[in-house]
């Protein structure tokens, strides 16, 4: 799975982190990336409003006896497929969104992408959250986090 880009959006839909491990997408201006992030945030919310089925009650941890996947994206935009790329969205309980853009692939790729996003979430919880000089919801400028992300995305490629 070739990873073209990774974006992290905060609770309000603002772009706080972006990295492009492999070339393969168009280069846009900084403003356009911010607009892209805001659009994704909005479409993610809209997608849950146009669902053709009724919302099902979530039985959660105690009902099923096993941990529900950390991806709290039951009815919002989860994945996107185009000719040139596929995009996967992982939303945490705290409202953070991790967006992975990869080369187009089969449906099975969605599971692999979710795994990558979980690993990135763990790196975020370690290297960003535990950095006392990082303010919440602000753009991420942590070198150690960059290195870890490179490590995670390299392993997959």
């Amino acid at each position: 799975m070739t990873i073209y880009s990774l974006y992290i959006l905060n609770k309000a839909g603002g772009l706080i982190y972006q990295t492009d491990p492999c070339p393969g997408l168009n280069k846009l201006s900084a403003n356009e990336y911010l607009v892209l992030a805001g659009t994704l945030h909005g479409v993610h919310a809209i997608a849950s409003r146009i669902s053709p089925t009724a919302p099902t009650p979530n039985t959660g941890f105690f009902g099923t006896g096993k941990a529900v996947a950390g991806n709290c994206n039951t009815s919002g935009l989860k994945s996107l497929e185009t000719d040139a790329f596929a995009m996967y969205v992982f939303q945490t309980v705290t409202g953070l969104k991790f967006v992975l853009v990869t080369a187009p692939g089969t449906r099975a790729q969605a599971d692999a992408a979710e795994l990558v996003l979980c690993r990135i979430y763990e790196c975020y919880a370690d290297y960003v959250m535990k950095n006392p000089y990082y303010s919440l919801d602000m753009p991420i400028r942590c070198d150690m986090f960059d290195e870890k992300v490179v490590e995670v995305t390299q392993v997959v490629v």
């Binding site: 997408l25 892209l36 659009t39 809209i46 409003r49 185009t82 000719d83 040139a84």
Partner: peptide, 23 residues
């Protein structure tokens, strides 16, 4: 409203696809 929302979602995502993707 659902028709309008669906159109909006499709339009926005199509624009994202056009802007970001290179063939």
């Amino acid at each position: 409203d659902s028709a309008k929302l669906l159109f909006g979602a499709l339009f926005s995502l199509r624009n994202i696809a056009n802007k970001l993707g290179t063939l």
